[in-house]
Design a protein around this nucleic acid. Structure first.
Length: 881
RNA sequence: GGGCGUUUAGCUCAGUUGGUUAGAGCAGCUGAUUUACACUCAGCAGGUCGGGGGUUCGAGUCCCUUAGCGCCCA
């Protein structure tokens, strides 16, 4: 048996060394032609490349990688691709800032334009064409993706890099557009002109999942409306008086006694003098203000609901820039009793932002005596786009929707079928599905995204006929309706009367990333592969995107395959900063992984991550990384030691049989228990317990077992004790078998250190070894015996001589305590050692007496049987110094 | 407002179906030692399990209540 153990083992540089080696040898490649091994497939979360990878990613991706490596070792053909989410708004924002550019679709393409970061950070953004802008996005995301890949490789993710996909790539485009077309034909996807939440800064619609409620200070205005045909007045309250011109009705709760007589009558809006009905609806809150509210087009989503349910008129006044649009009160849509004065009042606010218009019109109302009371301060929640800075408006526009409301029940059932880890995370999904209020708007008025694959005919009057969309054929996909021409038309007919025009919009990023299982596993491309991979085994992800990524993916899988996209999901917690505060860019406490890897090593960072349980928030704790590093170093050193003693000189001539010493057999039995335990834990996706079991054993193996058998394993004699060659071999092969097994148990957690050690004395990669079996450790020991002696040598175990390591370690500990209390060296001799206990306990020491004598440094151990002795009693006398 | 999670040694966390003196690592303190490992080794000390009530022979572990923290939904 030959070893090549470095003189001074080190963790330095092993990330680069082994990640390159793995790439070359292809140990992590999915074997598509292997149709016999069971498959374990992972639906990788594609990280947003426009952001930066932080410790939170490391946590979740390491958990996934531990499972991937474990499954690979248990004989699975692991399908573990990586995806990059480069599509969408976050990328646009990063590109705008990075290159100092802004997309202006009215500008024409400049082929020679090369985006470069601006020299003057304060310079105004350079307007460029849509195509140039999209190219700039492509360029930067590719650079970002390389940096991300480097980090993942350094962290040791066992990804099959040949399967990498991106959410803007050709494959993703084809899948997204194909799904779009099919859903449209089935009626699961529709388009129409309807009220939509709109971000005035981003100039785009947003979906329910992207909303964020923010508590804000506002003013509650109290305004008098006069009642039609009387001199009476009714007081309504609102936070948005600037919407007065778009008021279409007043509403109160049907149970509110104050307004019973008013229902069915009409009120006149102040200033604009438009007659509006007074109606009843249960959503009107009795105890909110005066209990009667104005319904506008549209102040919020409740207005939208009232508009639909009460069948009201439309009087839109807010335009897409969030300003008061130009309207005319002589128009039938705004039927003022006094159009001239209405127009005059309105001209004060026309063109202004909602915020400015609010204060302006409030002043006018007050001046003209329409205030019932002075405005009161209130805290109210306002809806924002999660990435936006201004409150959302509701505007009416053409959008594409995927139906969600119609499938609520089935979606809840699918949530039940999914195996959630931890199980309580399912509640978040249920909450979300139950709270769905609108279908999913998937169109975004942006540039860098997958085009909506639709054209519209232009009629002979030059009007776009949105109701007759032209769809591409499936085999034409992917298409860009701005570049490509629908069949039956000429490119020259673009934008002409009787011609066609492409849909301007792109899809919401989630409309693509909700298809990652289909994109990765060959849907509609390789049906044989798809059948084998889908549904996938594991979806790991963060708790923050249950309502988006997880929900949408289930929805899409249900719509296209009528079943779940995966069998299991593991939801990771947040990573908190070292002070247990949530990390966020604005707080500036984001922990980035690369410096941590440089400081502690990848295995150390993985160790920290492995100690975070699914669903539990975990602090970025460098202390834990230090402990991980210690473990990795211990693995190097202990292995080096075991190999060194195994290789030290010993005359094995004529050895044909070795009997395993009782303590050696005991430590192997301990390890069998650990293997069973770790396997069970990992099988149930509990990586933390799996690590804990192995780590505890391994550390005790180093501190207790190796210390105990050191002398015997070297084959030297001390304290007048000599060991036979058989006994020495027994210790050597046990140490080797334990190291071998421990390396495999630790390989998913510490892939670099274990691989490094494996390379010293075994062939191949530790990551393609079989996961240890609790029944075959003895076989491993026997194999090492064959290597150290001759292949024919037999190994005998002592069934009748079974002992427990715990009893032995207990005496070890008691003697150490005595020496420590005497402040003397562990190598100082013990002059007298008496152990009293029941015969069954004493038997342990009889069978390990020689090892104990040399390890404790004593030439005599007095063992006394006493059946009345409940506990072990040890008398220790140290030799005088 | 509804819901989920969490509260165990100075810190970070284990404590499986309720059962003997509540565990670990780190930090602290006391030592040892440099032929596997100073990114070492040994030992010591330190909690009555957020508060209150209850069920039980017995509760950190079940029930009720209350408070703090975090998050989800409205």
């Amino acid at each position: 048996m030959t070893f090549s153990v470095p003189e001074k083992p080190t963790l330095d540089g092993i990330e680069e060394k082994w990640s390159k080696n793995w790439e070359k040898s292809g140990v992590f490649t999915f074997r598509e032609d292997d149709t016999t091994s069971p498959i374990f497939s992972i639906d990788t979360p594609p990280p947003t490349v426009s952001g930066s990878l932080h410790a939170g990613h490391v946590l979740s991706y390491t958990h996934t990688d531990i499972m991937a490596r474990f499954k690979r070792m248990t004989g699975h053909n692991v399908f573990y691709p990586m995806g990059w989410d480069d599509n969408g708004l976050p990328t646009e924002r990063r590109v705008q800032n990075y290159y100092g550019i802004a997309c202006d679709p009215s500008i024409s393409y400049v082929p020679t334009f090369v985006p470069t970061p601006p020299t003057d950070a304060n310079a105004k953004p350079l307007p460029i064409s849509r195509t140039n802008f999209v190219n700039a996005c492509q360029k930067l995301t590719q650079e970002d993706e390389q940096a991300f890949e480097k980090l993942w490789r350094t962290l040791g993710l066992s990804v099959d890099w040949s399967k990498t996909y991106t959410t803007i790539g050709q494959r993703a485009q084809r899948v997204s557009q194909l799904s779009f077309i099919r859903l449209f034909k089935e009626g699961a996807l529709y388009h129409g002109e309807s009220p939509t939440l709109w971000d005035v800064d981003f100039q785009s619609a947003v979906s329910q999942a992207e909303l964020e409620d923010k508590e804000e200070d506002g003013l509650f205005y109290s305004i008098n409306f006069s009642l039609a045909g009387t001199s009476d007045q009714v007081e309504i309250q609102t936070t948005r008086p600037e919407l007065l011109a778009s008021c279409v009705a007043l509403v109160a709760n049907p149970k509110d006694p104050r307004y019973q007589s008013l229902f069915g009558k009409f009120a006149i809006t102040p200033l604009f003098e438009v007659e509006v009905p007074i109606l009843a609806h249960p959503l009107a809150e009795i105890d909110k203000g005066s209990g009667i509210a104005m319904i506008c087009t549209f102040g919020d989503l409740t207005d939208v609901l009232w508009w639909k349910e009460l069948n009201l008129a439309l009087r839109p006044t807010i335009d897409r820039r969030g300003r008061l649009a130009s309207i005319d009160f002589s128009d039938e849509r705004f039927p003022s009793k006094n159009p001239n004065s209405a127009n005059a009042f309105y001209s004060e606010i026309e063109g202004k932002t909602t915020k400015t218009a609010r204060t302006t019109i409030a002043k006018t109302l007050e001046v003209h005596g329409f205030f019932h009371d002075q405005p009161k301060k209130v805290r109210h929640s306002v809806k924002y786009f999660e990435k936006g800075d201004k409150p959302l408006e509701v505007v009416t526009s053409w959008q594409w929707y995927i139906r969600t409301l119609a499938h609520k029940e089935r979606l809840l059932e699918l949530g039940k079928e999914l195996h959630w880890n931890p199980p309580y995370m399912k509640v978040r999904y249920d909450n979300w599905v139950n709270g769905l209020a609108s279908d999913w708007n998937i169109s975004r008025q942006r540039y860098f995204g997958i085009p909506i694959p639709v054209w519209y005919p232009i009629d002979d009057e030059g009007q776009i006929d949105r109701l007759s969309p032209i769809l591409p054929e499936e085999d034409e996909l992917p298409i860009d309706p701005f570049q490509d021409t629908p069949s039956g038309y000429d490119p020259g007919q673009r934008g002409e009367k009787g011609g066609f025009i492409g849909d301007y919009d792109v899809m919401d990023t989630w409309a693509t990333s909700s298809l990652t299982p289909q994109i990765a596993s060959g849907w509609e491309e390789n049906s044989d592969l798809f059948k084998r991979l889908f549904p996938m085994d594991l979806r790991p992800q963060g708790q923050d995107i249950i309502r988006t990524w997880l929900f949408y993916t289930i929805l899409r899988s249900y719509l296209s395959e009528d079943r779940l996209p995966w069998k299991n999901t593991v939801i990771s917690g947040f990573v908190l900063d070292p002070d247990r505060k949530k990390m966020s860019k604005s707080k500036g406490n984001v922990v980035t992984p690369m410096p941590l890897i440089e400081k502690h090593g990848a295995d150390a960072l993985r160790y920290w991550a492995a100690n975070g349980r699914p669903g539990v928030d975990t602090a970025a704790d460098e202390n834990s990384m230090k402990i991980g590093r210690r473990l990795a170093i211990k693995v190097l050193n202990a292995s080096k030691f075991a190999l060194a003693i195994a290789a030290s000189e010993l005359d094995v001539q004529g050895v044909s049989e070795v009997e395993l010493s009782p303590i050696d057999e005991a430590v192997i039995r301990d390890l069998e228990g650990v293997v069973a335990n770790a396997t069970k834990s990992l099988d149930s996706l509990d990586h933390t317990r799996g690590l804990e079991a192995t780590e505890t054993f391994f550390w005790s193996f180093c501190d207790n077992y190796l210390e105990l058998i050191k002398i015997r394993a070297y084959g030297t004699s001390e304290q007048g004790v000599t060991f036979t060659t058989s006994q020495t071999l027994s210790a050597r092969i046990t140490a080797l078998a334990v190291i071998n097994t421990s390396l495999r148990l630790l390989a998913p957690y510490l892939p670099f250190a274990t691989e490094e050690v494996w390379s010293w004395f075994e062939s191949g990669s530790v990551h393609s070894q079989d996961w240890p079996n609790d029944l075959t450790i003895m076989d491993t020991a026997k194999a090492y015996l064959g290597k150290l002696t001759s292949p024919e040598a037999t190994l005998k175990t002592g069934e009748a001589n079974q002992i427990e390591t715990s009893a032995i370690y207990q005496v070890l500990s008691k003697v150490r305590r005595a020496k420590s209390e005497a402040k003397t060296s562990m190598k100082s001799p013990v002059s007298k050692l008496k152990i009293v206990g029941s015969s069954s306990i004493i038997r342990n020491f009889e069978l390990a007496k020689n090892d104990l004598m040399v390890a404790l440094v004593t030439n005599q151990i007095n063992l006394v049987n006493n059946e009345d002795q409940a506990d072990l009693e040890v008398e220790i006398e140290l030799a005088p110094r």
